[in-house]
Nucleic acid binder design. Sequence first.
DNA 1: CTTGACCTTCCTGTTGCATGAAGGCTTAGT
DNA 2: ACTAAGCCTTCATGCAACAGGAAGGTCAAG
Lengths: 131, 131
Amino acid sequence: MNIGEASKQSLLPTKTIRYYEDIDLIKPARTHSGYRDYDEKDVHRLRFLQRSRSLGFTIEECRLLLSLYDDGNRASADVKVIAEAKIAEIDRKVTELESLKLTLAALAKNCHGDDKPDCPIIDDLAGLRDH
Amino acid sequence: MNIGEASKQSLLPTKTIRYYEDIDLIKPARTHSGYRDYDEKDVHRLRFLQRSRSLGFTIEECRLLLSLYDDGNRASADVKVIAEAKIAEIDRKVTELESLKLTLAALAKNCHGDDKPDCPIIDDLAGLRDH
DNA sequence: CTTGACCTTCCTGTTGCATGAAGGCTTAGT
DNA sequence: ACTAAGCCTTCATGCAACAGGAAGGTCAAG
């Protein structure tokens, strides 16, 4: 099948599929005229990539996961370690975002939000307020 | 003062300060020999940028906030709108991350994490499991 | 045999800087 | 006066993960 069909089946844009080939994540066959020619295994790889990317794994993590996918003898522990590291990373990000939110919410709360120029948010950003 | 001193006072790396000049966020004076020459007002601008960036505002949002900072007659409501939009954006990100975490945690929980090849995480990514 | 949908490669742009090259300026020490 | 360290300058390139578009080749249908 050509790249358009592979795109539909894998839910990945053609641009992304070509990019993945560029960085050696997948190597489809080529037709006589040079068109990329994907088989079912290729589509499975692409779906694997689509799923792992959508779960927040980076390209390099996906590359690692793919190599484990390819290795029928990998230990499940190796995979679990990656997943748990990603979970910890997500936790860190959430914590940081919550902290930012608290700060912004405190600033917004003190701001009248009217048409007057007095604005605690700007004052804070300018370093004019106590911390 | 030269860029090194401005960097210390603003907590921004010199590379970042030059970059901000490149994208027209700040325009310091120049000495006879071509060195950038920052005054107190410049340092205030830089600190303003440092604070707003650290609160998660994008460069373009910072540009907007700076223009409000420069405009002594701005309405505080204009600033509040930006802050609240950012808070909403943070909420969206947190929600998405929590959702990812739930999915990953469910996968990891089912994975034995031993030295056997059977791995529910890989199976899921490969699309071999029900959803 | 032409139209139009699909395909190809290649180049540039995105965000917010970081890294490094090649060279000029300044200041302190000898 | 000279020199070495440590500033400073500009310009070019790279990162992640693609997206958009130009210029041109290919394929199936009418």
